[in-house]
């Protein structure tokens, strides 16, 4: 279990993160940590790992050294081959490590073993750390922006594999990302941070209901959407319009109108991006547009 209480993280005199609420992450939970750049996501991870100075309490029921972590940037020696690096970290010959071999095949990495780290592509570098992190079979595993800098297709493939691997395992996973779609694959709970402040924490579904209602309808912001008057518009990215529906009748009425006006739309009961935007909006005391 991870418990955070009255946590304040500092870089010299600058307070980079403040979580005054108590947050408990139970064993086996998969938690997404989201927020814009500078929200404090990586800072929180560093504090949990003991790599950033903090005040308050971070309680772990495991040793910090037993937490497996995939950081945004992971560098290894390029003097020796990737195989030598892997064997050094795993502490045995690759031939003897059954799990490592399974993961090497799972991530299609065997062709990279005799290359040097500096000669690997961005996706291959990420896969190397993923394999090493997953081999640790740690009680807590943290993925910090695993897919940053990768193209869409590689991102999708990697996250599908990671999600598939952890879905039914009893390991706690913290997944930091600002690609919200990646979170939908795997996480049960969401911690929202913004500008170094705590916004909200809870079940994905509960948070969605709290900020978006039962369902949300999302469409491109077009010139003529006046027919939506009377429906509850909630915060969305500038190029989109999001309408919150609290019951089936409302949904049917809205759908009918959208079909009549020939508008492309998406219906969602779990859109993390819209949910987090509205959570942040509420937390920073702005009125949700009605």
């Amino acid at each position: 279990m991870i418990e955070l209480k009255n946590l304040e993280v500092f870089y010299k005199d600058f307070k980079a993160l403040s979580i005054l609420e108590t947050i408990r992450i139970q064993q086996g939970e998969k938690v997404g940590i989201i927020g814009s750049n500078g929200a404090g996501k990586t800072t929180l991870i560093k504090a949990i790992l003991g790599l950033a100075y903090y005040e308050g309490m971070i309680q772990l029921d495991v040793l910090q050294e037993s937490i497996a972590i995939h950081m945004q940037q992971n560098e290894y020696s390029s003097i020796v081959s990737v195989k030598v690096v892997m064997e050094a970290i795993l502490g045995c010959s690759l031939k003897q490590h059954k799990v490592a071999n399974e993961l090497i095949d799972y991530f299609d990495f065997r062709g990279c073993l005799h290359k040097k780290f500096k000669h690997l592509s961005g996706g291959q570098k990420q896969r190397l750390t993923l394999i090493l992190v997953m081999c640790q079979n740690a009680p807590i595993t943290i993925f910090d922006e695993v897919t940053s800098g990768l193209d869409f297709e590689t991102r999708q493939r990697l996250m599908e594999k990671v999600s598939e691997y952890y879905r039914d395992r009893q390991q706690t996973v913290l997944l930091v990302s600002h690609y919200y779609q990646e979170l939908e694959y795997l996480v049960d709970k969401i911690l929202i941070l913004e500008k170094g402040q705590f916004v909200d924490y809870g079940d994905k579904e509960t948070l969605f209901k709290k900020y978006c209602g039962n369902t949300v309808y999302i469409m491109n912001r077009q010139k003529e959407l006046s027919f939506l008057k009377g429906f509850k518009e909630i915060v969305a990215p500038d190029h989109l319009v999001a309408i919150s529906c609290s019951n089936q009748e409302e949904e049917l009425a809205l759908t009918k109108l959208l079909v009549e006006h020939n508008v492309d739309y998406k219906r969602s009961i779990s859109d993390i991006e819209i949910m987090s935007l509205n959570a942040k909006h509420v937390a920073f005391n702005k009125e949700v547009k009605a």
Partner: peptide
């Protein structure tokens, strides 16, 4: 996991020395 002595890591460090021009 906390790491203790292993031959592979020693070999890795040795190679880093040997291949350091």
């Amino acid at each position: 996991m906390k790491k203790t002595f292993n031959v592979q890591f020693f070999y890795y460090e040795l190679m880093n020395n040997v291949l350091n021009g």
